[in-house]
Design a protein around this nucleic acid. Structure first.
Lengths: 128, 128
DNA sequence: CAGTATCCCCTAAGATACTG
DNA sequence: CAGTATCTTAGGGGATACTG
């Protein structure tokens, strides 16, 4: 595809709203090769609090991208996995991942070139 | 590509931070077939205020994705265009656009299915 | 027309602590 | 371990009005 419709179409905005939450794409990506438990996700991702992870998962769940499977037990045992719909998002996300690796440095260079604004570094990242 | 590196790599977060601003991708997309003046962009996009558009353009400029060309005159005449770097982002963005058209309805359906949370409809969109 | 200046609001996201 | 409860803050984004 390469039409030019979606500025008019709200579904496009909808898609971008999905990405406009800092952690959504990251969490989806972290689920790319199979269901994971919250602890695992937090390890994998790094720098995300339990609370924010839960919120993110709920959000993804609400949008039909993620499934929650709880197996009653104590200590609790839960895992989250991608729905078929969620899986369809991996390719586009991957495209961005690839882009980041190819062009990330150029972005950083551009930022350095324009030091002053100082404000624009992406939100404070937790870990290195 | 389809590796699994970028959770560890900050450049990935960097890429997603680019998208985590509501209007960034939309504006980039609106520039996809050539430089445009702010007025034109606002028409094309719809629902974006002058202020927010400027902010967005500044942000994209700062990240090396957009170029500003001002031709002294009055009334002022300015246009913004994609840099080569910015152009490299079109493909990934396009992937999302395509996704939105293919799967947008499924997301909406999922949302309706889980009415209650009510909070998750993407941020209030201006026009339909 | 391009852009800035205000003012306001809302909420995402962080930190911390607690429960079943 | 999964998840919730609080509290706080920063800043994105909207509305409006104004200037060169």
């Amino acid at each position: 595809m390469t039409a030019e419709p979606f500025l008019a179409d709200c579904r496009a905005r909808l898609a971008f709203d999905l990405l406009s939450h800092t952690w959504n794409a990251v969490v989806l990506w972290a689920l790319r090769d199979g269901p994971r438990r919250p602890v695992e996700l937090r390890e994998r991702i790094g720098g995300i609090s339990s609370k924010v992870l839960t919120e993110t998962l709920r959000r993804l769940e609400f949008n039909g991208l993620v499934d929650r499977h709880a197996r009653p037990a104590s200590p609790p045992r839960v895992d989250y996995g991608l729905t078929p719909l969620g899986r369809t998002l991996l390719a586009p996300i991957d495209a961005f991942g690839a882009w980041a690796f190819e062009h990330g440095d150029e972005v950083l260079a551009a930022q350095d070139a324009t030091r002053p604004p100082a404000s624009e570094e992406p939100r404070p990242h937790p870990g290195p």
